[in-house]
Design a protein around this nucleic acid. Structure first.
Length: 222
DNA sequence: CCAGACGTTGTT
DNA sequence: GTCTGG
DNA sequence: CCAGACGTTGTT
DNA sequence: GTCTGG
């Protein structure tokens, strides 16, 4: 699962490290990105322009946009079966830049004791989540762009905390995800990330979305 | 035919 | 919009 | 994901 | 318990 993540780089670093085009000029580094907030999304492999979208996919047919609060993730195994995701999987794939994400470890079944872990690459370099986007027309005629992060089975690093993880794409597979490849090939790149991620316990400060400072990802002892 | 759902997670 | 269930 | 709300009426 | 909002 992926219900919180980070993107701590400045625009120029993002462009250089991920090979992106233009980035919205109001971009600010983030240490605690929560569902329903605006996040950066890339949906074309040609210009690789980053644009704002709401995190939590609102299908075009939704009567109430509130459904987006529950569609923050999509299971990679069932994208073709789910009415909410099927069309987006075929024609509205996207990339979501990030440089870390949080998972909560269940201990002793007490919700207040769940221990958050921060996962990132050893050199703290950024990467891309595989995602889907959609467009929703509100009754007053406005267009609302929204997106979801695809999940897969957890790899060996993550599984001691949680059994699901976001799909992370490396530089080569990221642009394939945006291409017009056969469904079979697209599905094949939705796999657990093979490079070693660092698992770092952090304080429960991350639990509150309004905490959005470097303190959130500061390592703590468990 | 129409009506109603359409999702993931965790927990039990 | 599209699928499932009645 | 977690945190926080969850309701109606009448009166000011 | 379940839903909404961030």
């Amino acid at each position: 699962m992926c219900g919180r993540f980070t993107l701590t780089l400045e625009a120029s670093e993002l462009q250089r490290e991920l090979g992106l085009g233009a980035i919205p000029d109001n971009w600010q580094p983030r240490y605690n990105i929560a569902p329903s907030q605006s996040i950066l999304v890339i949906k074309d492999s040609l210009k690789r322009v980053a644009q704002w979208m709401r995190w939590g996919l609102i299908p075009s047919w939704a009567k109430n946009p509130g459904i987006g609060n529950r569609l923050i993730n999509a299971r990679s195994e069932t994208l073709m079966e789910k009415p909410a995701f099927r069309r987006a999987f075929q024609t509205q794939r996207c990339l979501i830049p990030a440089d870390g994400f949080f998972e909560w470890q269940n201990r002793s079944g007490v919700p207040s004791q769940r221990q958050p872990y921060y996962f990132h690459l050893p050199n703290h370099r950024p990467f891309m989540f595989a995602g889907l986007w959609d467009i929703w027309h509100s009754p007053d005629g406005n267009e609302l762009l929204s997106c979801t992060i695809i999940t897969c089975k957890a790899n060996e690093v993550i599984s001691f905390v949680h059994d699901r993880m976001p799909v992370i794409l490396d530089a080569s597979s990221a642009w394939i995800w945006l291409s017009d490849s056969p469904v079979k090939e697209l599905q094949s790149i939705l796999a657990p990330f093979s490079l070693p991620l660092v698992a770092q316990p952090v304080s429960r400060m991350v639990n509150k979305p309004e905490h959005d400072t470097p303190d959130v990802i500061t390592p703590v002892a468990t």
